[in-house]
Amino acid sequence: MNNIFVYLEIEDGIVADVSLELLTKGRSLANQLKCKLEAIAIGSQLDGIGEQVFSFGVDVLTLADDKKLYPYTSLPHTAILVKLFKEEQPQIALMGATSIGRDLGPRVSSALFSGLTADCTSLEIGDHEDKKEGKVYKNLLYQIRPAFGGNIVATIVNPEQRPQMATVREGVMKKEIADKHYKGETKKLDVSKYVSSTDFVVNVIERHMEKSKLNIKASPIIISGGYGIGSRENFDLLFDFAHVIGAEVGASRAAVDAGFADHERQIGQTGVTVRPKLYIACGISGQIQHVAGMQESSMIIAINNDPNAPINAIADYVITGNVEEVIPKMIKYYKKNTK
């Protein structure tokens, strides 16, 4: 009772990174709250899930295993979570801010009348005082997310309703094994008690999932371009540089919206979060939603022709100049001085 639940997203029997990241976060929150960390897997042929997740510190793994439950559809997964949460009364429920989590989370929260905060960038535990009501709430989940057009960060709490629900994007939390030998218990749900046949109203008749070849998150060096790059063609310069030094190319949302780069390269609050050894921000102004996704980079170089661009404040090196002038010089020097 009153534990922390993480919904596991599963594709082809593999638990998604975002779910493992949430388990890592969930483990540390559970330690703080002195409660258990539970994971729920809904799908088909789930025997291999335990070995993928227990090492993240999962105390209880609940399996809802039925071939009709894969691939994901909204109502059956909603029905299982809603009934399970009514029984188990979790205090916190976390899921990925993915196309599944963003389809499922709101339905569950609507059914349970529990608040849901989307796209949190940080989750913490703390107290909350409602001065008007003269009430103090202990150990609430602080759901922290950048809000509204930039420059502000809101801390959201759900004082009364449980579970406190939040979604988090892939890459925002770190993924870390808690203990290789951690052993939790596995529970199997009797699926027929949780889902009724009328829940299967939508059928997936065709499905093509691409395994993304791109893994910006894993790249130690990221060269990122913004609206200041000016065109898709000009982005080639960044790709050349990346090719030469062995880096990946990222982009700001303004660059993605303008069609200069593909969405999967977007870094920031509504893209991926990265922590490379080196981040080179080219023609990026440095709005909060972008910075949220890269500020933990070990070293940041900003190339911007505006000496007052906000990105400069968080950069280790500020080069005030035009990208198209600076990058070729970098490429030239690198080629000349390395084999």
């Binding site: 960060v153 801390t155 709490v157 400069n312 404040a313 968080i314 950069a315 080069i319 100049g321 002038e325």
Partner: peptide, 30 residues
């Protein structure tokens, strides 16, 4: 059910940045 507990202006952890010009000398030494 969700309440805004706090709204904060984001103040970045401003770093001590090194300022460089786009001149060959600066880029090469970097």
């Amino acid at each position: 059910p969700t309440k805004v507990k706090e709204i904060e202006n984001v103040v970045f952890q401003a770093k001590e940045s090194k300022r460089l010009s786009p001149d060959d000398f600066d880029i090469e030494s970097l």
